[in-house]
Design a protein around this nucleic acid. Structure first.
Lengths: 189, 189
DNA sequence: GTCTATATTTTGATAGAC
DNA sequence: GTCTATCAAAATATAGAC
């Protein structure tokens, strides 16, 4: 198990605070207090508050991008790809509950990395949409508006971070399977 | 058509800004600029920034509570009640897209009204859960974890505000029907 | 109803001692 | 790596003139 660096510790604690109050409402003094040090000391490890947000969001966004690329490249059918997407969200969300809050709610506060983030996000959505369209074309899933399907499924998956911590006892495979059943059967012909 | 008061105008413009950047990141100067006046002038109409947030969130939360109470009191079956809930969310969300963002993302910044908001919210979720449990008991919907069902449906409905403005051309009845098909068929036995 | 001027706090961040 | 001291900017809000 790799030893956590001081910067990583700061980013982890910051993500937790960002989840509770949002990036803008958390001050460097709040973060310092949570770390048990003074605000000025934080700057020995991070460049700026923005630097923390960037670290949290970009690494997560890239994880999703890589996961989606692997799913896209596979030869599976539409339903299996959707199940893989569900597993991807459950896995990443459960491993970084706090970071997921920033990814979902504070991306608009990114500065130089905003364009890059938005590109990753829209690429992801385009891949998702094309999986659904392929499934409709092949008759695998019902032919209702694919944008509404995507909205419904993706919104649920993106909000997992809110809900997973309330059910710490739940098995992650069980959760993936239950979500598959609920989300997929709604669009499975 | 009732004439909009200056306070109502301020609240409406504020909600739009809050949706874009979140409550904490919007300053009274930002709001004043969007209104075409100076920040000090805002205080002739509103008590504080907090007063604006409270006005936006509490009225919306009470609208949902009233809607849910009517649905609960009706004699309809589970599926029909769920369809009524979907219509309720589509209706309120489409009428107040900007306010819905604050309701979803900035409720934790409420001060004296926080407890009241949280009570309304948990009552709403309890009503929702009991509708699902009744549907399971009567055999109307499938017997998978009701908490996951609720999470999936409610998360989608709560996020409608993000997505509705992108589809201005869409008919709201069509949207309700499409959502019903996608969300309900997934849990319809 | 809006303005200018201003009070008071809080903010992100830096300098330099230890 | 952390501290104290401090800066400069930005924040909410008030007072009083017009």
């Amino acid at each position: 198990m790799k030893q956590e660096s001081r910067k990583e510790e700061i980013v982890r604690v910051a993500a937790k605070l960002f989840k509770e109050k949002g990036y803008s409402a958390v001050t460097m003094r709040d973060l310092a207090k949570a770390m048990g040090i003074k605000a000025a000391s934080l700057y020995n490890h991070i460049k700026s508050k923005q630097d923390i947000l960037k670290t949290i969001i970009i690494s997560l966004a890239e994880e999703f991008t890589e996961g989606m690329q692997q799913i896209q490249a596979s030869n599976e059918n539409c339903i299996d790809k959707l199940n893989k997407i569900i597993e991807l969200h459950v896995k990443i969300s459960s491993q970084n509950i706090y970071g997921m809050a920033s990814l979902n709610n504070d991306w608009m506060h990114l500065e130089e990395k905003l364009d890059y983030y938005q590109k990753l996000r829209s690429d992801y959505e385009n891949d998702f949409r094309s999986i659904l369209n392929a499934g409709i074309a092949s008759g695998e899933i019902v032919n209702v508006k694919p944008d509404v399907m995507m909205f419904s499924i993706l919104t649920t998956l993106r909000s997992l971070y809110i809900w997973i911590p309330k059910k710490e006892d739940i098995n992650l495979n069980d959760l993936s399977n239950t979500l598959s059943q609920i989300l997929i059967n709604g669009i499975n012909k």
